[in-house]
């Protein structure tokens, strides 16, 4: 089948080098020839094993004698951690170093040779194995070209049987499989913007130029399971000097006197984009460093994200609190296949 072959080996006049064989001379260790050195090595090994036992004692004494404290005494926790830990380390090192030192100095170190056997089975074994299989196939009556119906139905049954288990198992994994949940957040007309984490609403007057507020919808903290809602609804609220702010066409009434609100969830893979630089008006994601320009519709100016952060349209209610006009106009966070469907 192959059209390849090795080049014929070039015929050198003298043969190749000969394997000189395993070196015969054996350089003796000090302990091999000097009984005193051997005794010394034995004492060293014994001392190491003794060190191990001492380590165990240190660990146990630390465990029983040291107090872990009331959680505010960092040093107390450090002490007990270190006391037990160093005890364990000594207990382990002592055994390990002792055993290795023993092996290195006192155990016989003459190298020995053992033959390998080729892994391939002999031709007879292979033939015998094949014959066994053929016999078995014959006994079962499913030799080549026979009982096609039986074989076909068995294969079909084996192929589809896993589905009887897998479909119910996998089917239950994803809850209600309702991807539409990714399109909606808690933001709705008139929902107040509130401080994260205490949930108090924010007045427009509170947001001075250069300020940044980390925002959740009012009422979020009263939910029984707030994390899923929070994972979509977190917003970052920033006030810029209105003359620094470039308004995206069509969003003229989405901001309020330089106050803008953007989703805090990165359009790359969903980290919270939270690092706001007051001078450059850049928002940086600490995970993969996508950088968004708040003064220009949160467009991406650097990094692996492609899309701007979704903007939350805001207004100010009668009492001076900032509220959302409605939900985001696009799904927040990272892209997914059905995002625009």
């Amino acid at each position: 089948m192959s059209t390849l072959s090795n080049q014929p080996p070039s015929h050198e006049v003298p043969e190749a080098f000969q394997d000189p064989g395993v070196p015969t001379e054996h350089r003796p260790r000090r302990a091999d020839v000097d009984e005193r050195a051997a005794k010394r090595a034995e004492r060293q090994v014994a001392a190491l094993f003794g060190m191990s036992a001492l380590g165990t004692v240190i660990a146990l004494v630390s465990y029983f004698a040291l107090d872990i404290g009331d959680g505010n005494d960092i040093q107390a926790i450090q002490r007990i951690n270190m006391g037990i830990g160093i005890g364990v380390a000594l207990a382990m090192f002592g055994i390990g170093l002792g055993a290795i030192h023993w092996a290195k100095t006192l155990m016989r170190d003459h190298e020995m040779v053992e033959d390998r056997h080729e892994l391939r089975s002999s031709d007879e074994t292979r033939e015998a194995a094949l014959q066994d299989l053929r016999d078995g196939a014959k006994d079962s009556g499913i030799g080549v070209g026979r009982r096609g119906l039986l074989k076909g139905s068995l294969i079909t049954a084996l192929a589809v049987a896993p589905l009887s288990l897998l479909v119910p198992q996998l089917g239950g994994l994803g809850g209600d499989w309702n991807l539409d949940k990714w399109r909606r957040t808690m933001w709705a007309p008139g929902v107040r913007l509130a401080r994260d984490p205490d949930g108090t609403p924010i007045r427009a007057a509170d947001v001075t130029i250069g300020s940044v507020f980390h925002v959740i919808p009012e009422g979020l903290i009263d939910l029984e399971h707030p994390l899923e809602a929070k994972a979509k609804a977190v917003v970052i609220l920033i006030r810029l000097d209105p003359k620094d702010l470039k308004i995206v066409p069509g969003r003229e009434d989405w901001s309020f006197d330089g106050i803008v609100a953007y989703s805090k969830i990165c359009t790359h893979v969903g980290c919270p984009v939270a690092l706001y630089e007051q001078q450059t008006h850049h928002l940086l994601c600490p995970c993969h460093q996508s950088t968004f320009d708040v003064s220009d519709g949160c467009k991406v100016v650097f990094g692996p994200a492609k899309r701007p952060l979704p903007q939350l349209p805001i207004a100010v209610d009668d009492e001076g609190y900032i509220v959302s006009q409605r939900d985001f106009e696009e799904p927040i966070g990272s892209s997914y296949w059905e995002r625009l469907k």
Partner: peptide, 10 residues
């Protein structure tokens, strides 16, 4: 065998 204890020690 001894090396296991050394790794544990480290």
């Amino acid at each position: 065998g001894g090396f296991f204890f050394v790794v544990f020690g480290v």
